[in-house]
């Protein structure tokens, strides 16, 4: 099945620089419909008020962390099957296990490049 390049991707990170990098790399990969949130709480508000097809979220954020957002997403009827990629600067084994247990679709350790992002997206949604 062909990947819809117009699917709505929510990019969540408290660092504006990182959001911009992720959005730019997604654009380079051909995706056109990205929205942003600066922490888990804002992301959840967006998810509640509009439809999102894919989530790329940082782990370390104020108010609501990426792992808490992931748990909330997986508990919701609407988003329990929505692809969720976790991005983090810490490649700790226990964090990866916690994310997998919470239902993460894939995991990216910073710093990363467009090729890594493409590889992880392909594993989650298929070739594009």
């Amino acid at each position: 099945m062909a990947v819809d390049k117009n699917m709505r991707i929510l990019v969540v990170d408290d660092a504006q620089t990182m959001r911009r990098i992720v959005v730019n790399l997604l654009r380079q990969l051909g995706f056109t419909n990205m929205v942003e949130a600066d922490d888990g709480t804002t992301a959840w508000e967006r998810l509640s008020s509009e439809h999102v097809d894919f989530i790329v979220s940082d782990w370390n954020m104020p108010k609501m962390t990426g792992i808490d957002l992931l748990k909330k997403v997986r508990e919701s009827e609407k988003y329990k099957a929505t692809p969720f990629i976790m991005v983090t600067a810490e490649g700790k084994r226990e964090n990866v296990i916690a994310a997998v247990q919470a239902g993460v679709s894939n995991y990216i350790v910073k710093p990363f490049n467009a090729a890594t992002l493409k590889e992880k997206l392909t594993k989650v949604v298929g070739d594009f």
Binding site: A15, M18, I21, A89, K110, P111, N113
Partner: peptide
């Protein structure tokens, strides 16, 4: 230019 964007990862790290 994409590689420059990728290198900007340094800020967050």
């Amino acid at each position: 230019i994409t590689h420059v964007f990728e290198a900007c990862n340094f800020q967050d790290i």
